[in-house]
């Protein structure tokens, strides 16, 4: 099964990026084989709607679930529309987050965890 994790670096030893729309990388990983692809996020500097565009980007990668720190309201609506399960409050190393996910250590998030523009620096 393929899932996506927002990351501050391009490998499994990187830390989880707490932002969704404006994270550094999307790590798309197969939870069985741990084969992964790191996608650099083109929406980091967008003036608005970063979450909406990031939501559509990962939908194209056909992942079932997104693991991240926080998700804003527009991103949440988009992820819901594309049918991607959202898990927020994730932190630490990417590889540890994958292990925790595999052992059912997370719960699905039912709504946005932060307000718009939370990840704008």
């Amino acid at each position: 099964m393929k899932i996506c994790i927002t990351a501050q670096g391009d490998n499994l030893d990187a830390d989880v990026d707490p932002r969704f729309g404006r994270c550094q990388y999307f790590i798309i990983v197969d939870t069985e084989t741990l084969e992964f692809e790191a996608v650099s996020n083109p929406n980091i500097d967008s003036s608005g709607g970063a979450g909406i565009q990031s939501g559509q980007l990962i939908a194209k990668k056909q992942v079932s679930t997104i693991l991240t720190g926080n998700v804003g309201p527009n991103a949440f609506s988009t992820l819901k529309a594309v049918g991607v399960e959202v898990i927020t409050g994730v932190s630490g190393k990417i590889k540890d987050a994958i292990e925790k996910y595999k052992s059912n250590g997370f719960q699905t998030t039912k709504g946005p965890s932060v307000d718009s523009h939370f990840g704008t620096s």
Binding site: G49, I52, G55, Q56, T78, A81
Partner: peptide
């Protein structure tokens, strides 16, 4: 230009 759409 303002990312106001999501199309699935």
């Amino acid at each position: 230009a303002y990312n106001a759409f999501a199309v699935v």
